[in-house]
Lab assay of single mutants.
Amino acid sequence: TTVEVQGVEYRFDNPEEAEKFAKKMAKSLNLRVELHGNKWRVE
């Protein structure tokens, strides 16, 4: 599972970890998070 934060990609073996990371990043950067296939995008 991939998390893309403002163009930078982070890879996770565990989808739940990816989701937690994406939501945490979105909250700290005041952005929103969307799931596209198996990629979380924070923008």
Score class of each variant (00 low, 15 high):
1 T>M: 13
1 T>Y: 15
1 T>A: 11
1 T>P: 12
1 T>L: 10
2 T>V: 14
2 T>C: 13
2 T>S: 10
2 T>Q: 07
2 T>I: 15
3 V>N: 00
3 V>S: 00
3 V>D: 01
3 V>H: 00
3 V>F: 02
3 V>M: 01
3 V>L: 02
4 E>K: 05
4 E>G: 04
5 V>K: 01
5 V>P: 00
5 V>H: 05
5 V>F: 08
5 V>I: 10
6 Q>E: 11
6 Q>T: 07
6 Q>A: 10
6 Q>K: 09
7 G>Q: 03
7 G>V: 02
7 G>S: 05
7 G>H: 04
8 V>K: 12
8 V>P: 01
8 V>A: 07
8 V>Q: 07
8 V>D: 04
8 V>S: 05
9 E>G: 05
9 E>A: 07
9 E>T: 13
10 Y>K: 02
10 Y>Q: 02
10 Y>E: 01
10 Y>P: 00
10 Y>T: 04
10 Y>R: 03
10 Y>A: 02
10 Y>S: 02
11 R>C: 15
11 R>A: 10
11 R>E: 12
11 R>V: 13
12 F>Q: 00
12 F>W: 02
12 F>N: 00
12 F>C: 08
13 D>G: 08
13 D>Y: 07
13 D>L: 08
14 N>L: 10
14 N>S: 12
14 N>E: 09
14 N>M: 07
14 N>D: 14
14 N>V: 09
14 N>K: 09
15 P>G: 08
15 P>N: 07
15 P>A: 12
15 P>H: 07
15 P>T: 07
15 P>Y: 07
15 P>C: 08
15 P>K: 07
15 P>W: 08
15 P>L: 05
15 P>Q: 06
16 E>Y: 12
16 E>G: 10
16 E>K: 11
16 E>R: 11
17 E>I: 08
17 E>K: 07
18 A>F: 01
18 A>G: 05
18 A>L: 01
19 E>T: 04
19 E>M: 06
19 E>D: 03
20 K>I: 12
20 K>C: 15
20 K>P: 02
21 F>G: 00
21 F>S: 01
21 F>W: 06
21 F>Q: 01
21 F>Y: 07
22 A>N: 00
22 A>H: 00
22 A>I: 03
22 A>M: 02
22 A>P: 00
22 A>C: 05
22 A>E: 01
22 A>G: 02
23 K>S: 05
23 K>V: 10
23 K>G: 04
23 K>E: 08
24 K>Q: 15
24 K>V: 11
24 K>H: 15
24 K>S: 13
24 K>W: 15
24 K>T: 13
24 K>G: 11
25 M>G: 01
25 M>N: 03
26 A>K: 01
26 A>G: 12
26 A>C: 08
26 A>P: 00
27 K>P: 01
27 K>I: 14
27 K>G: 12
27 K>S: 15
27 K>A: 15
27 K>D: 15
28 S>Y: 13
28 S>D: 15
28 S>P: 04
28 S>R: 14
28 S>T: 14
28 S>Q: 15
29 L>H: 06
29 L>S: 03
29 L>Y: 05
30 N>T: 03
30 N>C: 14
30 N>V: 04
30 N>F: 05
30 N>K: 09
30 N>S: 06
31 L>C: 13
31 L>D: 03
31 L>M: 14
31 L>Q: 05
31 L>V: 07
31 L>R: 05
32 R>N: 11
32 R>S: 12
32 R>T: 12
32 R>M: 12
33 V>A: 15
33 V>Q: 03
33 V>S: 06
33 V>M: 11
34 E>Q: 12
34 E>A: 10
34 E>R: 10
34 E>G: 07
35 L>T: 04
35 L>C: 11
36 H>G: 04
36 H>K: 10
36 H>N: 10
37 G>E: 11
37 G>V: 04
37 G>K: 05
38 N>C: 13
38 N>R: 06
38 N>G: 13
38 N>F: 06
38 N>H: 08
38 N>P: 05
39 K>M: 11
39 K>Y: 07
39 K>S: 10
39 K>I: 15
39 K>N: 09
40 W>E: 02
40 W>S: 02
41 R>G: 04
41 R>V: 15
41 R>K: 13
41 R>D: 04
41 R>N: 06
41 R>I: 15
41 R>H: 11
42 V>C: 11
42 V>N: 02
42 V>R: 00
42 V>I: 07
42 V>P: 03
42 V>T: 04
42 V>Y: 03
42 V>F: 05
43 E>M: 13
43 E>I: 13
43 E>N: 11
43 E>P: 05
